[in-house]
Every structure is written in structure tokens, then in C-alpha cells.
Simulated assay, not measured.
Amino acid sequence: MPDITWEDPFCQDSGNCFRLGTDTDGNAYIAVNGREDHYLTDTMDALHTLIRDIKAGKADHLL
């Protein structure tokens, strides 16, 4: 398992909590809070694009 530094949980409503993380190789991670052992990984650029799209309202149905 990579050495992941996790951010504080981001929660919308009380039941939807996610955590974002990074490693020293420049990879980005997203996981459901409390289930950090089951994560998705991609590049930092992909994670930035996902966050920008969510903020722009393109993917608000995911949250």
C-alpha cells in the first residue's frame, strides 16, 4: 500500500464523506471516509479536473 497523506474528510449532508489524499510520487487518491483501504487513484491533474468540474456544477449529482 502506498504511503498516502489524507486530507480531513469533506462531508456534504451528514452521510456523504470523502477524503482526498496524495503520495510522494504525485498520485492523487479519493476514498469514502472510514474506508481509506478501498480507494481510487489517478494523477493530480485528473483529481484537479474532477474537483473543478464538481465546483462548476458538472458533477454535483456525485455528491
Rank of each mutant, 00 (worst) to 15 (best):
N33C: 09
A31Y: 04
D45W: 05
A59N: 07
T24G: 00
F18M: 15
G21W: 10
R19K: 13
P9C: 14
R19Q: 14
D53C: 05
H48R: 02
M1F: 11
Y39L: 06
L62T: 10
L62P: 05
C11D: 14
Q12V: 13
H48D: 15
A56R: 02
D3A: 13
D25M: 04
T5D: 15
N16F: 08
D45F: 04
W6K: 02
G15N: 08
G57H: 03
T41P: 00
D13W: 07
Y39R: 09
T41Y: 07
N27G: 13
D37L: 08
T49P: 03
I30E: 01
I4M: 10
H38S: 04
T22I: 11
N16P: 04
G34A: 09
L63Q: 06
N27H: 13
I4K: 01
T22V: 15
L20F: 13
D13H: 06
C11K: 10
H38G: 12
I51C: 01
Q12P: 03
F10L: 11
P9W: 15
E36K: 02
H61L: 00
M1E: 09
D45Q: 04
D3W: 02
T22Y: 11
A56D: 03
W6A: 00
K55E: 12
C17R: 12
T43A: 08
G34M: 07
D23S: 04
Y29P: 00
L62K: 09
G15I: 14
K55G: 01
D8I: 06
L63R: 07
R52W: 03
D45V: 02
E7K: 10
H61N: 00
I51V: 10
R19H: 09
I30P: 00
A46L: 11
G34C: 01
T22W: 02
I51D: 06
D25N: 14
L50G: 03
D8R: 11
M1Q: 11
P9Q: 14
W6G: 00
F18Q: 15
C11M: 13
D45I: 06
T5E: 13
F10S: 12
N33F: 05
M44C: 10
D37G: 01
S14T: 12
F10A: 14
